[in-house]
Design a protein around this nucleic acid. Structure first.
Length: 329
DNA sequence: AGACTCACTTCTACGATTGA
DNA sequence: TCAATCGTAGAAGTGAGTCT
């Protein structure tokens, strides 16, 4: 309304949420322009969709007063559509269609502002963004691969790769050197943040099932890394020879799950100590030649268990495998 | 318990860029 | 110069969480 008042000699009052003839509106705006009074029923939509447009069109006939759509951004095509069906609108980019004779304003084609601070820092370390971060922690050089390759390697959608990388850039975890490519920064800090977030925000989504097997069945089990790898305590005991495993974590691909369960004679058991998760790293890019997962995963698994033994072992893993790894920058 | 909302992921199309 | 590849952005689809 302020934006509009700059353009036209407008006086107005805004009244809060209201019902009129069984229709709900966010606000009611009463105004005077060139001595003529008018009233708008205001609908606020943070995002305009086709469905939203249809709802407006339906609501238009029932409305007591002309509708005014207030929204974030109306693209040019939508602006034309709204005008042709006679729905007035204003958006944040400065596009508008106002039709209160003698006032007629139609603005389209303004681009939306880049909303820099609206994306809170909650995306990157939640959900599948963590898959991409993991890939980059293991293979920092992959930061220079195309979004499509990253998408394929992690099984994450292209759009999500974009938002994740953008966020990493904003938070200074990636430095963009233009023609000379990109570079990962603060790897240790990134790793710490990842380890915190992984058990809460990614691991539950990977969970395939809980089982139990015969006692010490894992001792004589040889895993083919192509189909499954040890995580958690088993992997830790294999690496350090220190821990006596109390639980087992296995990472595999969905398609191998049935085979894995059968060959190791595992039984589905909600109280079992064998957890199977879906593997989310590609096998063909130098990740998987061992029957244990990358130390990063083992470390995160151990910390998530959180008792004294595993925490101690996690510390050992860190000193032996990860410390020097992150010292490089 | 059911309806609804919202955030997140995926899908798709477009315009820009690259390199043969 | 043109085709292939790339990043970007809008919109649909999906599912978890919330409210009544």
């Amino acid at each position: 309304m302020e934006a509009l008042a700059v353009i036209a000699p407008l006086d107005y009052v805004v009244e809060p949420a209201t019902y009129l003839r069984d229709q709900e509106y966010d606000y009611l705006v009463k105004g005077i322009v060139f001595g003529k009074k008018f009233v708008w029923c205001v609908n606020i939509k943070t995002r305009l969709t086709r469905t939203g447009e249809m709802q407006l069109l339906i609501g238009k006939d029932k409305a007591l007063h002309p509708l005014l759509l207030v929204t974030g951004y109306v693209p040019p095509e939508a602006a034309d559509r709204l005008r042709s069906i006679g729905i007035e609108f204003i958006d944040k980019a400065g596009n508008m269609f106002i039709n209160q004779p003698p006032l007629l304003i139609f603005v389209k084609g303004n681009k939306p502002e880049k909303e820099k601070n609206t994306m809170p820092g909650t995306r990157l370390f939640k959900g599948v963004g963590l898959k991409i971060v993991y890939l980059l922690l293991c293979r920092p050089d992959l930061v220079n691969s195309s979004y499509r390759d990253l998408s394929e390697m992690t099984g994450v959608a292209l759009g999500t790769v974009n938002t994740t990388i953008t966020e990493l850039l904003m938070k200074d975890f990636i430095l963009d050197m233009g023609k000379r490519g990109k570079k990962i920064l603060n790897r240790k800090k990134l790793f710490e943040r990842w380890v915190e977030a992984y058990p809460d925000y990614l691991k539950p989504k990977l969970f395939l099932g809980r089982f139990h097997g015969d006692e010490f069945w894992w001792k004589n089990t040889n895993l083919d890394p192509a189909s499954a790898q040890w995580g958690g305590e088993i992997a830790a005991s294999k690496l350090t020879g220190y821990l006596k495993p109390g639980s087992a974590a296995l990472y595999t691909d969905k398609k191998f799950l049935t085979d894995l369960v059968i060959t190791n004679r595992l039984k589905k058991d909600p109280q079992g100590n064998v957890e199977i998760f879906e593997r989310f790293w590609p096998m063909d890019y130098g990740f998987g030649d061992l029957d244990t997962t990358h130390p990063i995963i083992i470390y995160a698994d151990l910390l998530a268990i959180g008792d004294q033994r595993t925490t101690e072992t996690a510390k050992m893993i860190y000193e032996q495998y990860l410390d020097q790894y992150f010292r490089q920058d």
